[in-house]
Design a protein around this nucleic acid. Structure first.
Length: 596
RNA sequence: GCACCCGUAGCUCAGCUGGAUAGAGCGCUGCCCUCCGAAGGCAGAGGUCAGGGGUUCGAAUCCCUUCGGGUGCGCCA
């Protein structure tokens, strides 16, 4: 049961035309060129390692628009005083028409101020690149597999899965946006005992559908969502399983129920706007020699052996007794103990098919693997990384991101129960309460490894307490102004009109837009999509501040009916803001609002 | 006992992979609409970046250690 989505566009994004220069990258290149020239002129010794040279916005805007640490990182290797290097570099850079001033500061920082014309060039570039602004080729078409959700097919997705789903999906989009060839994948845990439990639970509902009284013992799933599955089973097979033993119905009911549950899960994912490229079945690994093949690979490397594990220190389980098991030597890769791949009764542990699954991913030719797990799988990280390192001979990196718990609240009340699922609040409950857009954005307002409080009251407020609203409101305000401008025949202009952008608040906003491409790259590099959400909030904040200044100073309003040229320039600027918000929300899978 | 994650303003959290005087929101105090939507904005007070060592031009960030919180540790997945 492996299916590929045939509709996906898998072409690589390596067209160099896609790699537009951006302001920070541009200035960075300029700095490197100046350093190379200084080497050629023997101001600096030749052959310096310039990889640590950075061009960044200074933390304090009073220091300038950009700062470079070049002098300080090169000083030691060059055997020179950093301030001397900075001074010489400043002379070179000051010749660049985009650089208004270059000042040495502190221990050897070089602070750069750009000309207003350079900032205006950013606006022109954004309007030109539109949806492509911020898109990067840094991934060079590398094939990345992002595995996420991977919930057991035993019931609907709950809030915890929702966070993993949103995080994984946004990360995948971010990697796609930065030039990676991404596959979104779901691992179906349909090979273990939990699907037998599912089958037995559905069987009870099936008997119920035939009018019998049933009791749900411990270790069965009592959730309401199985009622219709029991009914559907009755519709399909009639009464042929009613008076038969488990050996006659277990396999068929299990397959039937698993299919139904995956249908449910796919629908849940669709409600959230998540679309997987591939669903990979654990069961397909059994009885096909694939687990054996993966373990044979490890055995050939001397990493599989028969042994007896020490009992865990501290609190030994009461029924603990030494048993010989088949073990994987994960300690060779930094794990604390070696891990069993086979239970003492000869059955595979969960780890064994997972090894085979990752072996399969490696053999499909991925250059990089990413797994998104819940925080309760933290103990699993080292052994999985060990297995991938061993299977790929250290060729394929595996990054495992853990998503922390979500505490769902309504004001001070904590929401825990869902009648439908019998246990947790479901993904569907959350999406029904606040909508997919809000759910997605809020799930990304924390780092993945930080716990998240999700207040379903607060996120429906239309105020700045609600970050989703705040960002969408900025976009809607811009669209409103653009519509209003169009009504009176004023539309965003081109590069010739951008002289209207002069006020410090306007230049601050434009500078923020210039940061977008490097923000995207650093977020992708770190596998941290939440940075996009925080950036969008800051951008919205800068925009709202400028908007408000228009209340006090009419010259800062975007529509100047008596001055079409200025209006065209200002409209171009705010359209650029809207483009960046739209691109950012697009990565997060949130739709930008046209009106509110 | 061991491993992993975390500890930043009264509260909830960012901090761009080592940069300059540590930021935002909430809360608190005081302001701003004859308004391109105030569904917003401005200003102020508030910090021993848990404590202690180390690495270097430079540490909230990297290393060691102590304390405190969370998660996990064969025969569940």
């Amino acid at each position: 049961m492996i299916d590929l989505c045939p509709c996906r566009d898998t072409r690589l994004r390596t067209d160099p035309e896609d790699t537009k220069m951006t302001l920070f990258a541009d200035i960075h290149a300029t700095v490197l060129a100046a350093l190379a020239a200084m080497e050629a002129e023997a101001v600096l010794p030749a052959g310096l390692d310039t990889r640590a040279v950075a061009v960044e916005p200074p933390r304090d805007a009073a220091h300038g628009d950009m700062a470079t640490n070049a002098a300080m990182v090169l000083a030691k290797a060059a055997g020179m005083n950093p301030r001397d290097i900075a001074t010489a570099l400043a002379v070179k850079l000051a010749q660049d028409p985009r650089i208004a001033s270059a000042d040495v500061a502190g221990p050897g920082f070089l602070n750069l101020r750009l000309t207003p014309a350079a900032w205006r060039g950013v606006v022109a570039a954004i309007l030109d690149q539109a949806g492509g602004y911020g898109r990067s080729a840094m991934g060079q078409g590398r094939r990345v597999n992002v595995e996420y959700v991977s919930a057991n097919p035993t019931g609907p997705l709950h809030v915890g899965h929702t966070r993993g789903a949103v995080f994984g999906d946004a990360l995948a989009s971010l990697l796609d946006f930065t030039g990676h060839d991404v596959t979104r994948e779901y691992y179906i845990n349909d090979g273990g005992a939990q699907v037998d439990v599912l089958a037995r639970s559905v069987y009870l509902r099936y008997l119920e559908a035939h009018g019998q009284e049933v009791a749900f013992a411990d270790g069965t799933y009592p959730g309401d969502y199985l009622i219709e599955v029991g009914q559907a089973l009755k519709d399909k097979v009639g009464d042929k399983f009613v008076d038969t033993g488990e050996q006659f119905w277990l396999a068929e009911v299990r397959d039937f129920a698993t299919d139904k549950m995956m249908g449910l899960i796919r629908a849940d994912l669709a409600a959230l706007g998540v679309k997987m490229d591939m669903f990979y079945s654990e069961k397909s690994l059994y009885g096909t020699g694939r687990i054996e093949a993966a373990l044979a690979d490890l055995r050939g490397k001397g990493l599989i052996y028969e042994g007896v594990l020490e009992p865990p220190k501290g609190k030994t389980p009461e029924d603990w007794e030494p048993r010989s098991q088949t073990l994987f030597r994960s300690t060779a890769f930094g794990d604390d103990v070696d891990r069993p791949v086979m239970k003492s009764d000869g059955a595979w542990t969960y780890f064994a098919p997972d090894i085979a699954y990752h072996y399969d991913k490696i053999s499909r030719g991925f250059d990089e693997l990413i797994d998104i797990f819940g925080a309760d799988h933290g103990g699993y990280v080292k052994r999985m990384k060990a297995a991938v390192a061993a299977l790929s001979d250290n060729r394929v990196p595996l990054d495992i991101k853990l998503t922390q718990l979500v505490k769902l609240k309504r004001g001070d009340e904590e929401l825990k129960m869902s009648k439908r699922a019998g246990t947790f609040v479901t993904l569907r409950d959350v999406v029904d309460m606040v909508g997919a857009d809000v759910t997605r954005f809020v799930m990304l307002t924390r780092k993945n490894d930080a716990p998240l409080d999700f207040d379903v009251e607060k996120v429906r407020e239309q105020s700045k307490d609600n970050p989703v609203f705040y960002v969408q409101y900025a976009h809607a305000r811009i669209q409103s102004v653009l519509r209003k401008g169009a009504e009176i025949g004023l539309v965003p202009g081109g590069v010739d009109d951008l002289g209207a952008i002069q006020d410090p608040a306007e230049l601050t906003l434009v500078a923020k837009l210039a940061h977008w491409p490097r923000l995207v790259e650093s977020a992708a590099e770190a596998h941290e999509p939440h940075r996009i959400a925080f950036y969008l909030y800051e951008l919205a904040s800068d925009f709202h501040a400028l908007w408000n200044k228009g209340n006090a100073d009419a010259a800062l309003r975007f529509l100047q009916e008596d001055d079409p040229a200025v209006t065209r320039g200002k409209l171009a600027m705010i359209r650029a803001v809207a483009i960046v918000i739209s691109n950012g929300l697009g990565i997060l899978g949130v739709s930008p609002a046209e009106k509110m």
